[in-house]
């Protein structure tokens, strides 16, 4: 499943980068993310709660921030296993300055497997866009609160 989109965040690229790579901010802003524990080298153990159609539950896994270029770009990888199967995300994020702040662009792939893939597959990309929208909306709100 392709993930692609962009969002304007009212802050500088450096600040936005800081927000997006701060575990505390992520736990506050990412829907369902319950816990992120750093394990070094930009890697975190993570725990998420998600529900797609009738398959709800807690996914445990990891998240890494790779190829990080401070204030410009990074690659986010996540993998989680839960009751309905697995979720894996591999996404490139780039930040560029604009008149209104920062244009955040993301492009990547999400894979789901197991039971969750077989139920409501046609809704999944809609659900994913919705979650991404919620996430970056919350980040934008954080940016406004900490100018």
């Amino acid at each position: 499943m392709q993930l692609e989109g962009h969002k304007t965040i009212p802050s500088t690229p450096d600040r936005v980068y800081g927000l997006l790579t701060d575990p505390e901010v992520l736990v506050r802003t990412m829907p369902g993310l319950k816990r992120m524990t750093p394990t070094g080298d930009g890697r975190y153990d993570a725990e998420m709660e998600m529900g797609v159609a009738a398959i709800r539950g807690r996914y445990e896994g990891w998240m890494t921030i790779e190829d990080a270029v401070l204030g410009q770009s990074y690659r986010l990888r996540m993998e989680g296993q839960g009751p309905g199967g697995f979720v894996a995300v591999d996404m490139a994020v780039t930040l560029s300055p604009t008149d209104e702040g920062t244009d955040l662009r993301y492009v990547g792939q999400a894979k789901v497997g197991g039971t969750v893939a077989g139920v409501g597959q046609r809704m999944l990309s809609g659900v994913a866009s919705f979650i991404m929208g919620q996430f970056f909306g919350a980040v934008a709100k954080e940016a406004r609160q900490q100018p």
Partner: peptide
């Protein structure tokens, strides 16, 4: 099945 071999018609919804 999708390209990764996931059965995407796994319920009566699909």
């Amino acid at each position: 099945y999708d390209d990764d071999g996931q059965l995407v018609t796994g319920s009566f919804m699909d």
